[in-house]
């Protein structure tokens, strides 16, 4: 198998809500770039049609109908959920009932109570769910799930040995691009989503990276809310992940803001003295002092130097220049 548990050369996808505005655009775009990953989709009432004339992915009324087709039954192993927030729980149940063991929830604003049920289901049934609010996954040597990288992912992604994990979808791409410009290629970029209850957390992914020989190091983009960065520190302290890790935790400034200011993701709301950015940074730094494998960047753009300071080798040449010239200048 080439690739990771989350996206590999065997990954074949069924898209729930495939004819929606965002889903259809993303699927058509992705199939042009990396054909053959998306096999079919579901939109109740549109069964028997195809997504688009020049992108003839079959659409079914139910997952059950789709998997009645023998070829699909044999190939499809991954779900991609693009339905409205209050329909996500239903979509997860439908996929689990039909034997799908890996799925992505791209939908934002999933009710927290539904997320809690979804996580418990996943745990009890041994299913891996990424999200909600995931932007998807990108493995340059394989392709992508979801919208990561837009129409031209080559701007941000080049094959390499680094894994980028991020709560923020947008920063998954922006961070990958920053590293690419500095000579680090990406083995996998995974947007785990910024919800308070995330079905797959940083600490869930790191043990997978530990045993994967293709992974040299990991970069984590954290945010306030939840204790998922703290769990990374605990995992590393126990020896569950020993490769280099560069981290940036956003949101220190929010601690100076009046209580109750929600800004950015739902999960980035600072809650009752728990999961504050400064707490996370402190814990990671303490463990890093002992293991010498963690570096927390003070500024986001210092992430590259943080990784270099841990002795991680470049995959290709560094194209950085100290004085980036603006495209346009009307200052003087």
């Amino acid at each position: 198998m080439r690739g990771t548990k989350y996206l590999n050369d065997k990954t074949r996808v069924i898209v729930i809500g495939i004819t929606g505005r965002e889903a259809s655009q993303v699927v058509i775009e992705s199939e042009k770039l990396y054909p053959g990953i998306v096999k079919c989709g579901v939109t109740p009432g549109k069964g028997g049609t195809v997504l688009k004339e020049d992108c003839p992915i079959p659409v079914f009324d139910t997952v059950k109908d789709a998997l009645k087709v023998n070829k699909l039954k044999q190939l499809v192993n991954t779900g991609l959920i693009y339905v409205p927030p209050t329909s996500v729980l239903d979509a997860v149940y439908e996929l689990i009932d039909n034997g799908i063991k890996l799925m992505y929830v791209i939908t934002e604003h999933v009710p927290i109570r539904d997320s809690i049920i979804i996580y418990e289901l996943a745990r009890e049934k041994g299913v891996t769910i990424i999200g909600g609010t995931s932007l998807g996954c990108f493995v340059p040597s394989i392709g992508r799930i979801g919208a990561i990288g837009g129409k031209d992912p080559s701007v941000a992604f080049k094959d390499g040995s680094l894994v980028v994990l991020s709560k923020s979808g947008g920063l998954t791409v922006t961070t990958s691009e920053m590293f690419k410009r500095r000579g680090f290629g990406i083995y996998m970029a995974l947007a785990v989503g910024g919800d308070v209850i995330a079905c797959t957390t940083f600490a869930d992914v790191l043990p997978e990276l530990e045993k994967d020989k293709n992974v040299q190091a990991c970069v984590i983009m954290g945010e306030p809310g939840g204790v998922y960065e703290e769990q990374v520190a605990e995992l590393i302290a126990k020896g569950g992940y020993t490769k280099p890790l560069a981290v940036f935790v956003a949101g220190v400034f929010q601690e100076m803001m009046p209580e109750g200011v929600a800004f950015g993701h739902a999960g980035a709301i600072v809650e009752r003295g728990m999961g504050k950015a400064t707490d996370k940074i402190k814990m990671l730094e303490e463990v890093g002092k002992k293991t010498g494998t963690i570096k927390v960047a003070k500024f986001y753009h210092e992430l590259v130097n943080s990784l270099v300071s841990l002795g991680v080798k470049r995959d290709f040449g560094d194209s950085y220049t100290d004085s980036v010239k603006p495209l346009y200048n009307t200052l003087d």
Partner: peptide, 15 residues
């Protein structure tokens, strides 16, 4: 722009 992006830009401005 962006939830995560906006957060880190603003905090750099503050810093």
């Amino acid at each position: 722009f962006g939830g995560g992006g906006s957060t880190i830009i603003v905090e750099t401005v503050f810093a």
